[in-house]
Amino acid sequence: MEKSTTYMNPYLAGFLLGLVLLATIYVTGRGLGASGAMKSVLISGVETVAPAHASGAKFYTEYTNEHPESPLKSWLVFEVVGVIIGGFLSGLISDRLGFTVEKGPRVRSGVRLAMASLGGLLFGLGAQFARGCTSGAALSGMAVLSTGGFITMLAIFGTGYVVAYFFRKFWI
């Protein structure tokens, strides 16, 4: 097979992603996710750095009650470790590895990195309210025909289109 740096046909990629999700549902009874792993990492970090604070604040104690084991011993943490490996392998075979800052044509790298951090912050916060992000709530929720999943998906993309105009100079 020729080594190609072009991306996979989106419909084929979508079909394969759908099969991965279907296999996940069939084997484990749950969907894919991502933000849950960030939550585990953060809780684990806070419990290590500031154990006194973690044992006093409700968010952490509620989590510990529901997950008596270490927060890092969670399904999504293992899954996200896999995503890192899978993403790296894909980049390797398609020759896309390399340290870059990807940004719109009219943006400086510093601005892009600040925006990426802020966007991440908002996404991390929003995913807590919605009990999942694009993978865990929107995609997996849609696949099992959850009303909440559809609402979250519409809210993410609907808001995205509403505010896109104001941030256009960052991307185009």
Binding site: A116, L118, L122, F123, G126, I151, A155, G158, T159, F167
Partner: peptide, 12 residues
């Protein structure tokens, strides 16, 4: 939550 994520998507 979805609306906050939508803004995060555009910015990030």
């Amino acid at each position: 939550g979805g609306a906050i994520m939508g803004v995060g998507f555009i910015i990030g």
